[in-house]
C-alpha cells in the first residue's frame, strides 16, 4: 500500500503533507517510519505538518481498518509503529507545528496533537468520532488530549464524539493560534521562521530538548538538564563578549 506522507522543504523548514485527497484518510497508522522521519528532519530547523487540499485529515479509513482488524496481530503491530511514529514527532528537537484546515478528526487529530503547536484555520473542525464506531483513539490521542484540556472537556470529546470548531479548540487550548484559511500556510511559515531564522541548529536542538523535557521529567531534573546543555554550548562557543 502506498504511503500517504509527502515531504517537501521550504528553505530550512520541512513540510510533511498528508496526501490522500479529498479527505486525506490515514490508510495505515504507520504512514511513515520513524527512521525515515529522523532522516528527513536531520537537516531542517523546523517542521510543519499539514493536509493536502481542503482538509487536514478525516482520520482512519474505516474500510481499511476493518480489513486490518481481521488480523489482530498485524493491527497491533501497525498501531505500535504508529504510536512510535507520533512519539517520535513529539520528541523531535526542532519545533513541530500542525497547520490545520478543514476536517481534523480521529487519527488526524491524534497526529495534530503530537506536534508541539497547532495553528488552525477559522474553518477547521475537530473531533474524536471513534466512539460512534465503538472504538477509542488508538494512537495516544487520549493522553495527549488530557495534557491540553481538563478531564471534563475531554469526556465531552471522547465519550460524546462532539465536533468542535476552531474558536472552541482555541478556547480549550487544543489550538494555539487561529487565522483565516486563506493565509494559513503563509502565517504558519512566518511564525516558524520567526523562531528558527538566525538561530543555529544546535541552539534550536537544546531549547526544544529542554521544552520536551518539561513534559516527562521532574522540575529538578529538567532544570539540571537545562544547565548541562547551557554548559555544553558555553564551552563550545567561540564568541567574544
Amino acid at each position: 500500500m502506498e504511503k500517504i506522507a509527502h515531504w517537501t522543504t521550504k528553505e530550512d523548514i520541512g513540510i510533511l503533507t498528508l496526501k490522500n485527497p479529498p479527505q486525506n484518510f490515514i490508510k495505515e497508522p504507520d504512514f511513515l517510519s520513524t527512521e525515515r522521519l529522523l532522516e528527513l528532519t536531520k537537516d531542517v530547523k523546523g517542521m510543519l505538518i499539514t493536509g493536502f487540499g481542503k482538509h487536514f485529515s478525516a482520520g482512519a479509513d474505516l474500510q481499511s481498518l476493518k480489513i486490518l482488524s481481521q488480523n489482530k496481530e498485524l493491527l497491533l503491530s501497525k498501531l505500535t509503529y504508529g504510536n512510535e511514529l507520533l512519539k517520535c514527532i513529539e520528541e523531535l528537537n526542532i519545533p513541530v507545528i500542525a497547520v490545520v484546515n478543514g476536517i481534523c478528526f480521529g487519527a488526524g487529530l491524534e497526529i495534530a496533537l503530537s506536534a508541539h503547536l497547532r495553528i488552525v484555520a477559522k474553518n477547521s473542525l475537530f473531533a474524536f468520532p471513534e466512539i460512534n464506531h465503538e472504538l477509542i483513539p488508538g494512537l495516544g490521542g487520549i493522553i495527549r488530549l488530557l495534557e491540553n484540556i481538563t478531564k471534563n472537556e475531554a469526556v465531552q470529546l471522547l465519550l460524546k464524539g462532539d465536533v468542535i470548531d476552531a474558536e472552541k479548540a482555541l478556547s480549550l487550548h487544543i489550538a494555539d493560534d487561529l487565522v483565516p484559511a486563506a493565509t494559513l500556510m503563509e502565517h504558519a511559515i512566518q511564525r516558524i521562521k520567526r523562531m528558527t531564522d538566525c538561530r543555529s541548529t544546535e541552539v534550536i536542538h537544546c531549547i526544544m530538548q529542554a521544552i520536551n523535557n518539561t513534559r516527562k521529567m521532574t522540575r529538578d531534573d529538567a532544570i539540571a538538564a537545562e544547565t548541562r546543555m547551557f554548559c555544553e554550548l558555553a564551552a563550545r562557543t567561540n564568541q567574544i563578549f
Binding site: E202, C231, T237
Partner: peptide, 12 residues
Amino acid sequence: SYNLIPGCGGIY
C-alpha cells in the same frame, strides 16, 4: 541570540 540557552531553569 548569543548561541546559548537560558540555563538556570528559565525554560522550565
